[in-house]
Design a protein around this nucleic acid. Structure first.
Lengths: 154, 154
DNA sequence: TCTCCAAGTGAAAGATTCTTCCATGTCCGG
DNA sequence: CCGGACATGGAAGAATCTTTCACTTGGAGA
């Protein structure tokens, strides 16, 4: 069922992870099976949820989103209601790439993309600290993106 | 730069970001232009680097990488050589999804995917604290992934 | 061992799509 | 008004997709 992946499935997954626009014919040739079989396998990988989505990775700098910021957030209270309200509000902020509830000195970690620092300052003042239940935020400007969104190894 | 993108280009980018396997014919129909024109436009978006890559997003839980961890790293010394050595070593660790040089209480922020906490503990002890020049690390286990790797808004 | 069944496989073929070529249309600067 | 650079869509051969079907394989049970 959805549990087992043989070597061919794994190879298909890895190839599609590196180039999601590979044609079925190219995939089939790369894994040395017929196009028909490859088509069926790939279809199953999608249907069974092994591939959540195929996404074109738009170059951030090309669309004026070249500035990356990490933000640690501490809430006033650590109640389930407080968390739920915060998460609901975060989901509407489209510049938030990641939002994770963590264990440690912060309640949440955010990963945010904006055009520049000025852009971030406005967003921080108008939207971040205005989020429900936020006690404080700590901003970490990214000065260099060493690795960003690397493909998953498995 | 990005001023060269008209509404049709932007629409193509957004559509491919949501579904990187859209066929040229489907794209053309969605943006109301001919397949030939759509093909040329899309090709240009790739050639000019607006689309860095197209990736199948493999579901982490399906391939035993369901545990996410954020790690803050402080180095012994803040010299260019120290940074360069660290970054060179990080690039070889395939479980590191993000590695960013930041301004603030840490030198680097890492985003890591592993199978489980036990998995992380081994990696932390064997590989992370063994990285060159690391003074200390602070681990933030992710308890809930509210938003992970959301598509870029532009 | 033999039989049967389920699952996987590849050849084949019609439908669809890709990709290129070319004539036409549009926008500006001269 | 003209001319050139560029963008557009139609058309058509080449390539690909997607389904069908018959065959092979592997394992469970008699």
């Amino acid at each position: 069922m959805s549990g087992r992946l043989d070597r061919i499935d794994l190879k298909i997954l890895r190839l599609l992870q590196n180039n999601g626009r590979l044609s079925n014919a190219e995939l089939a040739a790369s894994v040395a099976i017929s196009p028909a079989t490859c088509h069926r396998r790939t279809q199953r990988l999608f249907e069974d949820g092994f591939i959540a989505a195929v996404r074109a990775m738009v170059a951030p700098k090309k669309v004026a989103k070249g500035t990356l910021v990490m933000v640690g957030v501490v809430l006033d209270r650590s109640t389930p209601e407080s968390f739920a309200t915060f998460e609901q509000a975060i989901a509407k902020l489209k510049f938030v790439l990641d939002c994770h509830l963590v264990a440690g000195d912060f309640d949440y970690f955010l990963k945010i993309r904006v055009g520049d620092m000025e852009d971030f300052n406005r967003i921080h003042g108008e939207q971040l600290i205005a989020l429900p239940g936020v006690r404080q935020t700590r901003t970490f400007f990214v000065m260099k993106e060493v690795v960003d969104n690397a493909p998953l190894e498995f």
